[in-house]
Design a protein around this nucleic acid. Structure first.
Lengths: 156, 156
DNA sequence: GCGAACGTTCAGAAATTTCTGAAGACAGGG
DNA sequence: CCCTGTCTTCAGAAATTTCTGAACGTTCGC
């Protein structure tokens, strides 16, 4: 356990890493804020304060992270603010979704396979297609295996 | 089998899809050029002509795609030009490498786990860490399984 | 219904990324 | 050892992305 400053630094480091991996800056910072918060839910105002950015930026970031399926809106009676919470299965969901990206690639490659006659190009494209199809099939299996393993561990 | 125009269009579509998935534009176009070429190897000049871009752009794109491990330099005696060729195991290599990106994230999350005391944040971070660690372990297994399956299929 | 508190949208500023073209480096043949 | 063809580097132009701030909606308590 350590101080507040170190917590924020670790959060910013993780956000930076996620940016390096291709995530939008503001989305990554918002996500890190959720991960590192002791609260169950955060409001847009909380995020704006924690990150030191405008309400507009928060709105955009939240929209994106929600679309990724990592957080969800929570209706809280008696509060006029909208609350957001990290979803329980955020990471496995993200992984699965990234594989719908794989699906897009697969489609494009498939068109390619149809568009060229026999030859080297055709062979290359087929190989690529086979691998991506394989990945697409295996992703859900992998996730299922992780969840099973985790269930097993938590109930010894 | 179809005409040259359709082949190029399919190549451009695949490149665009790869860009949508996060790849740099020029790198994606170069990669598509390799995939769709009937030649075994391409030179920087070939690429410049095929893509209609400057030598400088080609140099940068090739450098990047080579760093991703998708193509390799080929020394050809009697030619002053440098030739490049798609590597046989390009896609499985790419997949494995993307998981060294996972490794980066894993490290950052791990720091986070150490930086916060017990509580909700700690639990969230641990969950994320466990999933990414699981992925990192499973990636090579998956690739191995694909290759085995492919070997099996090609020698019935 | 009114007013206040929040959230969202959007035009434009700022930052970042990407491409080019020109200059330079390098290798091999003559 | 120079000359030519080829690749790389780099400063700056162009395009794209990202952030902000202000104006506009919306919702809830009263």
């Amino acid at each position: 356990m350590t101080g507040e400053t170190e917590r924020r630094e670790a959060a910013e480091r993780l956000a930076l890493t996620l940016v390096g991996v291709g995530m939008q800056r503001m989305g990554a910072r918002a996500l890190a804020a959720f991960l590192f918060s002791e609260k169950e839910t955060l409001t847009a105002g909380d995020l704006a304060e924690e990150l030191g950015v405008s309400a507009g930026s928060v709105s955009g970031a939240v929209k994106m992270v929600a679309q990724m399926g990592l957080i969800e809106r929570v209706h809280v009676a008696g509060s006029r603010r909208e609350h957001f919470r990290m979803r329980d299965n955020a990471w496995t969901t993200l992984y699965t979704r990234q594989h719908s990206v794989v699906d897009e690639v697969l489609r494009a490659v498939d068109e390619g396979v149809d568009a060229v006659g026999p030859g080297r190009a055709h062979d290359r494209l087929e190989y690529m297609r086979d691998f991506y199809a394989f990945l697409l099939n295996e992703a859900p299996v992998l996730v299922e295996r992780f969840e099973a393993q985790r269930r097993g561990r938590s109930r010894p």
